[in-house]
């Protein structure tokens, strides 16, 4: 690449030159392509072995569940407020939107059912995961990255304390446990929000609202597959968060960069996985 540029500026291009240059450019771009592939495979392998490292320490983690429990507080309980408030608004908007659409077809009584199915299957797991990334995963990355930047992780290793067992695995498992719990809360509160707008505000019949929901939304198909999605999202987002934190460049800027990467990679993973899971589940 560098040689090609130098030639361009210093020598008048002739026909033979340009062929030569093109060949250099071609080789360079093939090389770049190969490098891209290799580095991505290397990256995937790194993530995989990191994940296996966490899995290997799972028995120890079950033995010291207090660590996970404390992280559930930081990761889960502290995200609860944003989840609850967002859920109310999600429910309100869903109810209002479905009402304006379904009203045109004279089917306003199924507003609750439509909102419930959308929430259980898609919106609940995905929105909970996105909020979770913004609220909890960034905190996880920053906390671990900060420990990396201030050499606390190396200090632990020096003291023969396994940093993955002490810092990474509890956070990972707390994330995996918390996200489905938060998803369940989001679903229930959002249903309540839909109830507020559809029954209390618009004045649809309460009986129709609940009975249609019972009729159309099935627990085994809709709710449980939504919960399965959120478990998968929990693994993906928590793994992204702890991986980015653990491999952050040990500077303040590096931690900031790692946090941004967590949000970008986590969100894209959630949306991509959602499509794949929907294609397989339904």
């Amino acid at each position: 690449m560098g040689t090609a540029k130098r030639q361009e500026t210093s020598v008048e291009p002739t026909a033979a030159m340009s062929v030569n240059r093109r060949r250099v450019g071609l080789v360079a771009s093939i090389r770049r392509l190969g490098w891209l592939l290799n580095s991505n495979i290397y990256y995937a392998g790194q993530v995989f072995w990191f994940f296996m490292g966490i899995m290997k320490r799972t028995p120890q983690i079950i033995g010291r569940f207090g660590l996970v429990w404390r992280q559930i507080y930081f990761v889960g309980t502290l995200s609860m407020i944003i989840i609850v408030v967002s859920a109310v608004f999600i429910g309100l908007v869903l109810g209002l939107q479905f009402y304006t659409i379904l009203e045109r077809y004279g089917q306003a009584q199924v507003v609750g059912a439509a909102a419930a199915i959308t929430l259980y299957r898609e919106l609940g797991p995905v929105l909970a995961a996105l909020l979770f990334i913004g609220c909890a995963c960034t905190a996880m990355t920053a906390a671990i990255g900060q420990k990396r930047a201030t050499s606390q992780i190396q200090a632990m290793a020096v003291m023969a304390v396994d940093p993955i067992e002490r810092e990474i695995a509890p956070r990972f498992w707390a994330g995996v446990i918390s996200l489905p719990l938060l998803t369940a809360i989001l679903m229930a509160i959002a249903i309540f929000g839909t109830y507020l707008i559809a029954v209390v505000h618009i004045g649809l019949d309460e009986g129709f609202f609940w009975s249609n929901m019972l009729r159309f939304a099935s627990f085994n198909n809709d709710v449980l597959s939504g919960m399965f999605k959120s478990v998968v999202f929990g693994v993906a987002t928590s793994l992204t968060a702890v991986f980015q934190g653990y491999h952050a460049t040990p500077t303040a800027e590096g931690v900031a960069h790692a946090t941004t990467k967590t949000v970008i990679i986590g969100s894209l993973l959630v949306l991509g996985l959602d499509f794949v899971l929907t294609a397989f589940l339904f």
């Binding site: 419930a116 259980y120 249903i191 609940w210 929901m213 019972l214 939304a217 627990f219 809709d222």
Partner: peptide, 10 residues
């Protein structure tokens, strides 16, 4: 709540 009121169990 979801199981009782907002989705039908078998």
């Amino acid at each position: 709540f979801i199981a009782m009121r907002a989705a039908s169990l078998g």
